[in-house]
Structure formats: C-alpha cells, structure tokens
Design a protein around this nucleic acid. Structure first.
Lengths: 137, 137
DNA sequence: AATAAAATTGTAATCATTACAAAACACCAT
DNA sequence: ATGGTGTTTTGTAATGATTACAATTTTATT
C-alpha cells in the first residue's frame, strides 16, 4: 500500500496524515502481530528519531476513534493494537503470551449482540494453550 | 447461601476459607454488578476494618485460579470481577460506563473456539450504547 | 502450649497510560 | 516570502491500578 493511499485513508476519516501518523499506521498494517504501544515506539524510534511515546498513544487514539484500528484488551497488563478491523477473534496463550487471530463463524456478531443495545464494537477473546505450547507440555 | 456452604466451596477448590476470603467471595456473589477491586475494598472496609486492598487482590487471584470468578477486561482502565462463571457476554456502555450481562446463544463457545487451541476461558465483549443512554441522546 | 506454615496488612515500588505546556510545524491570507 | 493562527509533536511529570515485599497476625498441627 502506497503512502498516498494511506494518507487518503486518514484524510477520509478526518485525520491529517502527518509523518508520524503515517509511520504508526503503516507499521500496524505491516505487522499483524498485535503490538503494544511500546513495541511500536521502539520500532519506529530508529527511523524517526524524534518519535515520542505520547505521539504513538495519541495516534492510536485517533485511529481508534476513526474506526481504523481495534484495541485488544485480552491482556490486562497492556493494550494491544490491531489494524485489522474485520470480524475475528483473539486467542492468548497463557504459556508463551502470544496473541493469535482466529476466524469467527459468519454472522457471529449479529447472533451474539444483545438486543436493545447499540453495539459499536464486538470482541471475542479466548485464552488457553496454543498448539505449540500444548505440544511442549 | 450460608457461610458454611461458601466455606465448603472454597475448601473444595483448595482455598482455605478465611474471614476475608469469605467476605470477598460472598460480596461478589451478592453483588452482580461487576465491581472493581476498589469497589469491593470500599464496601468491605466498613464491616472488616482491617481489610486491605492487597487482600482483595490476593483473594481475587485465588478465586480466579480456582475457576470461581471471571476477570472482565472490557474496560482497559481497571479489571472488573464477576462471580458468575456461566456462559454470558458483557456489554459496556461508552456513555454511562455501566457493565451489563447478556445471554449468548447456546453453543456459541463451541462454535467460536478456534480448533487446535486448548481454550480455557472464553469472553465475549460488546461496546456501545445501553438502552437508557440511547434514549437520552 | 509450642512450633511451623499460611494469610493478612501497610507501605513502597512498578509501570502503562495520560496530562500538560513548550516547541515545532503546517496552513493560509496578505 | 512573511506573519499569524491553529494543530501536532515532544519530553517530562503526574496518575492510578496493580504488585512486591517484609513484618505482623492468624491458623493449623504436634
């Protein structure tokens, strides 16, 4: 995805596409590993020496408000960010700590969402052992 | 539920039923409002003047490990505790901040859980506007 | 009662996140 | 270009939930 397209995406959501915001957003799009704010910060420090943690957080909030990312709170300690806003669940392995995506059956959201409530966000979290950690057990 | 029954429940899970633990657990059973650690602490302070926040946290961890409660992380700021371990979803209203329970369609968990993973915990979170806050909008 | 083990408590530390104000930057009209 | 205005970024300091820890108290056991 070109920078131009990214910039247009941000603009279309009312976010002016600054260098820092583009850097954060494109990092998220390129790394589907559910990074934390600090992980993103550490990675971008190298290329953008003036990048600050606060900017990472500010950008995350802006992207979140614009519906461009999902904040994963399956880990109580720290938030993880995910630029994939399509329907999917998150699995956390209690052994290795890794976060995995998993598919949700079609229409899960519609079936599960409580009636009478206006549901804006929908998250499915599972916790346990990933295949690898089951094996080394 | 009598104190005796509660004590037996704890004992059967390998948790010795101290005064403090019984107080915390019975508070959770009586108040299905998904309280935070501080809410529980503030409430129990009156009757148990020596109760400490650390004890509340310790007890929550013990109950959680024993499978007697669920830790709700839908609110990134602080954890909420729920003694109802039966299958149900949690809804958070972004306006009033309240947490609501909602029913999940039967077998949701089985249908949604990713294959190949050993799923120990399963949480469904929805966020948006509760019926009341939709009305006052 | 004496001893050992476990639980509780208060305080201090940790650490992710946010508040804030100063500096840097972008945009626009003149 | 220039100056002015509003936005963005940045570093530091504050916040606040949670945990670490060591001393004290309680509980269980002999």
């Amino acid at each position: 995805m070109t920078t131009q397209v990214l910039a247009d995406t941000l603009r279309s959501r009312g976010i002016s596409p600054t260098q820092q915001r583009l850097a954060v957003y494109s990092y998220l799009l390129a790394h589907r590993t559910h990074p934390t704010a600090d992980t993103v910060y550490q990675a971008l420090c190298r290329d953008y020496p003036t990048m600050s943690r606060t900017t990472v957080y500010n950008t995350m909030r802006a992207l979140f408000r614009a519906g461009l990312l999902r904040i994963v709170t399956i880990d109580a300690e720290e938030q993880h960010f995910d630029a994939d806003t399509a329907d999917h669940g998150h699995f956390r392995c209690t052994q290795c700590g890794e976060l995995f995506d998993f598919d949700l059956p079609a229409d899960t959201m519609r079936q599960c969402a409580p009636s009478g409530f206006q549901t804006d966000l929908f998250d499915v979290y599972a916790t346990g052992l990933c295949p690898h950690c089951q094996a080394t057990h």
